[in-house]
């Protein structure tokens, strides 16, 4: 099981180079990171996956963007929108992660979307940044939303990912810290482990439904 931070923003989006982030991730207990707008590579024994984050785009444009990026073996994430948009995006082949559910509309993720995410193996990202740097109502809303997602996750078993959304090494947190934060929102340790390996789950090719002997 690989422990992956599902989204970091290295230089020039952030203030730390991808090598430094990989080095820091290693010290913090991660095996791999998904770095936005960075080619895939390996630094200091840490796998760096290329991450493509698509936001504020219509669903049909996303399909063409995914087609263009298909050969790059990148982890494709889409910023969550309203419920119709989310359902459309989850149905698209090549989308790995839906991000920003905590800042989307209250009704953006329901039981039908959860079932679709489970069927299509699309992960829902739990962004740790509002829990770490947020205070007051921002943090409370994120906790409420994540607890709601966890209820659906236990029922439908769609994949989850955990990301720090760090723009700097100062915003990255140790695996132990993230486990502590997730435990405080009533996330089971097995769910946390599954969420850490969520990127592996959604990027690995699906197993054959029928085994041919």
């Amino acid at each position: 099981m690989k422990i992956t931070d599902a989204c970091v923003y290295p230089y020039p989006l952030g203030d730390s180079s991808v090598r430094r982030m990989a080095l820091e991730a290693k010290e913090l207990g991660f095996d791999s990171i998904v770095a936005a707008d960075t080619p895939s590579s390996e630094f200091s024994g840490i796998d760096v996956f290329s991450g493509i984050i698509i936001q504020q785009t219509a669903a049909r444009d996303i399909a063409s963007r995914i087609k263009r990026e298909r050969n790059h073996r990148a982890v494709v994430s889409v910023q969550a929108g309203n419920i119709g948009f989310n359902r459309a995006v989850i149905g698209l082949k090549g989308v790995h992660i839906i991000r920003g559910i905590q800042s989307a509309d209250k009704t953006a993720f329901d039981h039908v979307t959860a079932k679709m995410a489970a069927d299509n193996q699309v992960a829902i990202d739990l962004d740790m940044s509002p829990l770490i740097s947020g205070r007051g109502i921002t943090r409370q809303r994120a906790i409420q939303r994540y607890r709601d997602i966890l209820v659906l996750e236990r029922r439908f078993e769609f994949p989850l990912t955990i990301s720090s959304h760090a723009h700097s090494i100062l915003e990255m947190r140790a695996v132990r810290d993230i486990v502590g934060i997730c435990s405080s929102i009533d996330m089971e340790i097995t769910d946390i482990k599954m969420a850490f390996s969520g990127v592996d789950t959604v990027t690995s090719p699906p197993a054959n439904a029928v085994k041919v002997i």
Binding site: L131, I132, S133, L170, E171, R173, A174, R176, D177, I178, G180, I181, S183, S184
Partner: peptide, 11 residues
Amino acid sequence: RELLTALSTIT
């Protein structure tokens, strides 16, 4: 555990 979780929220 509670202290360490709180410490990780300091930015």
